[in-house]
Design a protein around this nucleic acid. Sequence first.
DNA 1: TCAATAGTTTAGAACAATTATAATGTAGAA
DNA 2: TTCTACATTATAATTGTTCTAAACTATTGA
Lengths: 139, 139
Amino acid sequence: MLNNSQYIDKLRSSGLRPTKQRVKICEVLFNTDKTFHFTINELVKKISKVSNHKISLATVYNTVHSFKKKGYLKEIPINSDQSYFDTNTSHHHHFYDESQKNLIDIDDSDVEPVKINTKIPGKKIKSVEVLVKVEDDKS
Amino acid sequence: MLNNSQYIDKLRSSGLRPTKQRVKICEVLFNTDKTFHFTINELVKKISKVSNHKISLATVYNTVHSFKKKGYLKEIPINSDQSYFDTNTSHHHHFYDESQKNLIDIDDSDVEPVKINTKIPGKKIKSVEVLVKVEDDKS
DNA sequence: TCAATAGTTTAGAACAATTATAATGTAGAA
DNA sequence: TTCTACATTATAATTGTTCTAAACTATTGA
Ligand SMILES: [Mn+2]
Ligand SMILES: [Mn+2]
Ligand SMILES: [Zn+2]
Ligand SMILES: [Zn+2]
């Protein structure tokens, strides 16, 4: 819910040049109250719906990766032939409906904190992600 | 820890023809006390170490997929350019060391049961998987 | 003001995992 | 033994992603 000059500030302050491509992608990703999940292909389609000036596929990949590195996006681990990203960077988990290939947020308050009672020497925990696979309840 | 005739019985009883390729792959996957994780490429290498008669890549893919469908293998959801499979089909979770690209079992007794206090209408839960990403503890 | 420069975008090629194809082979039944 | 459905195979096709190198541009500071 920011305007373009605020995206420019945000990009600049994180050390990314505010090019028109990046600002446009910010608009598509962040100019809404609702967060959402997307694949690169879906993002490309969204961009072309909103703008008539197309952004090359390589730039979309580059931008998504740099936004992920800056922490503005998360990547969701699932068994899929393509990568899923999430504009919701807060701690939360997911339902995955394999038949519809549909990802749904599980609010963090709806999951009891996951307790891991073991560790790996010399390693520290970076993230804990729960994936709940669901299927049609044909009963 | 079965011998070949037992793999033949197992395959036959699950409706899969016990071809020599499938029996060989059973040997490589299941003829050990320890379970393990693997990618298709790693499996192909294991096979060629154990046998001098090579199995085509397409057959390895076909067999792994049919074993997964029969429940003899699980696929682990991870952000990776290749699929990871698990000969441990019991309920358990994983550490993933992204720097080493290394998957490690977390024994089910080392994770408090994950409680999900929400559901999706018309869908039932098929699996709940926890992925704990770790990194070097440079401190 | 404007050239220098470092970073960015781009089209297209390259790459790698996976899946499809279609011809050949074979396990199991009759 | 013969038949048939299923399985294997080499190879091609597909597809998501990354690489490349040339053109472009935001920013700096002379
Ligand atoms: Mn893939
Ligand atoms: Mn991929
Ligand atoms: Zn989410
Ligand atoms: Zn495992």
